[in-house]
Amino acid sequence: MKLAPLLALAFVAPGSALVRFHCSQLVVERLDPLVNPGMIPSAHVHQIVGGNAFNATMDPKADLPVESTCTSCQFEDDFSNYWTAVLYFKARNGTYMRVPQLGNNQFEKANGGLTIYYMQDPIYESKQISKVKAFQPGFRMFTGSVTARTLPDALPFRQLTYVCMDTWTQRSPETIAFPTRKCKSGIMVSIRFPTCWDGKNLDSPDHMAHMSYPETGTFESGGPCPATHPVRTAQVMYEVIWDTTVFKDEHWPEDGTSPFVWSFGDGTGYANHGDYLFGWKGDSLQRILDADCHFMTNCSKETGLKLQSIDAMNRCTQKPKIEEDVDGWLDALPGGYHAEYGHA
Rank of each mutant, 00 (worst) to 15 (best):
A4G: 07
L7V: 06
L7Y: 09
L9A: 07
V12F: 13
A13R: 14
S16Q: 04
A17Q: 04
H22D: 11
C23D: 05
C23A: 15
V27S: 08
L31C: 02
P41D: 09
H44M: 03
H46T: 11
Q47C: 04
M58F: 13
D59G: 08
P60C: 14
A62H: 08
E67Y: 01
E67P: 01
S72A: 13
D77A: 14
N81E: 10
N81V: 10
Y82E: 08
Y82Q: 10
T84G: 08
T84M: 13
F89N: 02
V99G: 01
N104A: 13
N111E: 00
G113Q: 01
Y117H: 14
Y118K: 04
E125V: 01
E125T: 00
K127C: 03
S130P: 06
T147R: 08
A148K: 03
A148I: 07
R149Y: 03
R149A: 04
L155H: 01
Q159W: 06
Q159T: 08
L160F: 08
V163F: 04
D166R: 01
T167K: 03
Q170S: 07
I176V: 15
A177I: 02
R181I: 05
K182R: 15
R192M: 14
G199K: 05
K200Q: 12
N201I: 08
D206M: 11
F219Y: 15
G223R: 03
P226H: 04
H229I: 09
V231H: 11
Q235H: 02
Q235L: 14
E239W: 08
T244P: 10
T245Y: 05
H251M: 14
P253K: 01
P253D: 06
E254G: 15
G265I: 02
G269P: 02
A271H: 05
G274K: 01
W280A: 00
K281A: 11
S284Q: 09
I288V: 14
I288N: 07
M296N: 15
C299K: 12
C299Y: 11
K301L: 13
L305V: 06
L307N: 08
S309R: 10
S309Y: 12
C316M: 06
V326N: 07
W329I: 12
Y341A: 00
A344L: 03
